[in-house]
Design a protein around this nucleic acid. Structure first.
Lengths: 147, 147
DNA sequence: CTCAGTGCAAAAGCTTTGCATAATA
DNA sequence: TATTATGCAAAGCTTTTGCACTGAG
C-alpha cells in the first residue's frame, strides 16, 4: 500500500536517508509534525494521524516520536505540563514564550546560542549540544484581562 | 507534637507568613528542599522526609510541592525526564546544564534576565514572569569517556 | 525471505482525588 | 470548635513493553 499525499514522498526520502524503514506510519507522523505550526503532544499527533490511518496505535506514535528525537528530526519541548510537546527540527534557533493565562505558545528567535555556548561552555568545561530557553508570562490579551 | 530540628522553626515562620497552616509535614518538606543543593523530584523529597516523619504520605508531598510552587517558595525545573524537579526559590537568577552522559546537573548564573526581558518582552508585548534556560550536553568527564 | 515495525493489551511510572481521621488556629 | 491538612487507597494520565502478526527491503 502506498499513500499518495503531498509531502509524504519527500518524507519517505528523509526516512530512507536515515537508514531506517520508511513505513506509512512514520511518513505520516513526520508529515503532521512538519506541517503543523504548533507544538503537538503525542496525543494530538495520534488524533490527527488517525484521520488518515485509522488503525494506527498510540504506541507507534510514542515509539516514532522517540525515534525521531534520537534522529534529530524533531525537538522535544518542556512546558509546565507534565507531558512532552514536539515540533519539527528547524534550522534557525528559536525559543518559546508560554502564556500562563491562555496557554498560547509564541516562538521567537534570539541569537543566544553562539554567545552563550562559547561563554558558558568555557566556564563550565561542558560540551553543549542544545540550548532551550523557556519564558513564561502573560500575553497582551491576558495582561489586559488581569487588570 | 512539635518537631525540634534546626531550621524547622524558621520555616514555620515562613509558612505562617503566607497565611497557611504550618504543619510538621510542610515545615519538614520546606526544610529538605532548602537544605538540599540538588534538584529533588517528588519521590526524593518523600524518601528523605520519611526518615523523620515515617507516616508521611506521598500525596502530601505532591500537594505540598504544588502549594509551595503557587506560593513561590519553590521552583519547578523541567529536565528531559517526564517528571518534575524542585528547588528552593533563590534570589539570584540561575540556569541549568544537564549532562546527557551521567545526568549530573550544573547550575550557573548568567545575566540573561534583564537584557532579554527588556528586548523580548517589547518585541512580543509579553509580560515576562520567568526565564528558564536549559542546556544539555556532556560534562568534562563524559566528554572524555565518549572518545 | 528476513527482520524491523506495528497493533493490541497490559503494565509501569508519575500525579491527582475522595473520603474518613487528625491536627491547627 | 471549625476548618484545614493528612493518610490511605483508588483512580487518572502519560508513556513503555511483551508478543504475535505484518510489511518493507
Amino acid at each position: 500500500m502506498q499513500l499518495q499525499m503531498k509531502g509524504i514522498s519527500k518524507n519517505r526520502t528523509t526516512l530512507n536517508a536515515t537508514g531506517m524503514r520508511a513505513t506509512n506510519q512514520r511518513a505520516l507522523i513526520l508529515d503532521i509534525i512538519r506541517k503543523e505550526q504548533g507544538h503537538l503532544d503525542a496525543d494530538e499527533v495520534y488524533r490527527q494521524a488517525r484521520k488518515k490511518l485509522p488503525l494506527l496505535s498510540l504506541s507507534t506514535v510514542y515509539r516514532t516520536l522517540r525515534l525521531f528525537k534520537k534522529l534529530d528530526l524533531v525537538e522535544e519541548i518542556h512546558f509546565d505540563e507534565a507531558h512532552h510537546h514536539y515540533e519539527a527540527k528547524q534550522a534557525t534557533e528559536h525559543h518559546h514564550l508560554f502564556c500562563l493565562g491562555c496557554g498560547k505558545v509564541v516562538e521567537f528567535t534570539y541569537p543566544l546560542s553562539h554567545h552563550v555556548k562559547r561563554n558558558i561552555a568555557e566556564a563550565e568545561d561542558f560540551d553543549i549540544i542544545e540550548i532551550e530557553m523557556r519564558m513564561t508570562g502573560f500575553c497582551p490579551k491576558c495582561c489586559q484581562d488581569r487588570q
